[in-house]
Design a protein around this nucleic acid. Structure first.
Lengths: 196, 208
DNA sequence: AAGTTACTTTTAAAAGC
DNA sequence: GCTTTAAAAAGTAACTT
């Protein structure tokens, strides 16, 4: 019974990193108009947004490049993909004659992941018993929970699937899912998916 | 001393000016939304507390009043969606929703999850459906909730689907289009919800 | 009625309005 | 606060076919 459910949710939670947002600092200024005129497939509309948009196909990522030499890279699904993307962006800029001297300083700012605890969740009950949560099915089907440790936000659905966002380290994702699974179990908000 | 009095006076008058303007908005919206008196009075109380806490600074009076009305409706379980309230203002649903969350947090207002059953009377009355249809629709939603098949669904859509099924079963048939219209959802949503409810509750609908 | 596309929610950073 | 990027979850919406 309860111990079976516990075994199910403690061992079955799965997580997958879906998107990593990072800032990259090149200690030098950049001429965005020059980049736009030389590098293909970029978009630069300063009246709409101060950053130049560059999309990479291989590690499918997108970079927002600013004249200060700082950039935001989004879309990577792993730290390795993120690093590969940054190297590729710099190689691309150099290929078109844009001088980049400094080594890029990469900092992960946000990790978005999906998770699944393999048990149905009683959202109404969870909304009532779980602190820092909001559940407004009129607006969004998921329950929004702000966890303090790790400090992340979870979007929890009745299917047992969820979205974890706001993490700075990959390990926080799994910790958060384990934490919420235990809390929901303790609050008796779970319903096992496979009976018996 | 005189300065402090003047400053206080200035602040008080600005609060009063703000309140006066807000109450005018509240009067207008209450009429357009046909709000019961108790909802209007609660919204006024909420707004007054918001002003006293300085929550209106940097926000439009209209958005905050709209949010106060929505909060009052939720507290008193008077069904009004954020969209219908927004329809009567220049503010966006998103902006009002933001103010609503702020009011709940800052004023410690506790609200339960919307109950789709509360939407049944509005839909049924708008279509001249009988009390027995309403009773049946409510029973359908009670059973659905106990089975956990309503999680994540829009309460207005669930109520519309339950009324549709109850009306069919009672021989007071209304089209999905009519029900969807008064419930403020699309026909597709009514269809999706009623099919799921019928399936999960084992209800057989008279063939159309 | 099915299929598409697209919007709702959350997160973080960049420079500037 | 807004603007732009990406991504998942599940529900709803708006068009096409």
């Amino acid at each position: 019974m309860v111990t079976d459910i516990k075994r199910e949710i403690d061992l079955r939670p799965t997580t997958k990193i879906e998107n990593i947002v990072a800032t990259v600092i090149l200690d030098q200024s950049l001429d965005l108009n020059l980049i736009e005129s030389r590098v293909p497939n970029v978009s630069y509309q300063p009246d709409q947004f101060p950053g130049l948009i560059l999309r990479l196909e291989k590690p499918k990522t997108t970079a927002l490049i600013f004249k200060s030499g700082k950039m935001v890279v989004t879309g990577a699904k792993s730290t390795q993909q993120l690093i590969d993307a940054v190297k590729k962006i710099i190689k691309l800029l150099r290929k078109y004659g844009i001088k980049i001297v400094s080594k890029p300083r990469i900092q992960i700012q946000n990790i978005v992941a999906s998770g699944d605890i393999n048990a149905y969740i009683n959202l109404e009950r969870a909304a009532y018993l779980l602190e820092d949560s909001m559940y407004e099915p009129e607006q969004f089907p998921g329950l929004i929970h702000r966890m303090r440790e790790p400090r992340v936000v979870l979007l929890i659905f009745s299917s047992g699937k969820m979205v974890i966002t706001g993490a700075k380290e990959e390990s926080e994702v799994e910790t958060a899912v384990r934490n919420i699974a235990k809390k929901l179990l303790d609050l008796d908000c779970l319903l096992p998916k496979k009976s018996e | 001393k005189l300065r402090r009095w003047q400053a206080r006076s200035r602040i008080q008058s600005s609060i009063e000016r703000n309140l006066a303007q807000a109450m005018n908005e509240l009067d207008r919206l209450s009429d357009q939304l046909n709000l019961p008196r108790n909802v209007k009075e609660e919204a006024a109380r909420i707004y007054r507390r918001a002003v006293e806490k300085g929550l209106v600074r940097g926000r439009s009076i209209e958005s905050v009043i709209a949010a106060a009305i929505y909060a009052a409706c939720r507290e008193l379980k008077i069904p009004r969606t954020l969209d219908e309230i927004a329809k009567h203002t220049k503010s966006s649903r998103k902006d009002i929703a933001r103010c609503y969350r702020l009011l709940l947090k800052e004023l410690d207002i506790k609200v339960q999850t919307s109950d789709p059953i509360d939407f049944i009377p509005r839909i049924a009355h708008a279509l001249n459906l009988s009390g027995s249809v309403m009773k049946k629709a409510a029973e359908i939603l009670h059973r659905a909730r106990s089975l956990g098949v309503t999680a994540g669904n829009d309460p207005a859509g669930l109520a519309a689907a339950a009324v549709y099924i109850a009306a069919q079963l009672s021989g007071e048939r209304r089209t999905q289009k009519e029900i969807a219209h008064v419930a403020g959802v699309t026909e597709v949503t009514v269809r999706n919800r009623y099919k799921e409810l019928a399936k999960e509750l084992g209800i057989d609908l008279p063939t159309t």
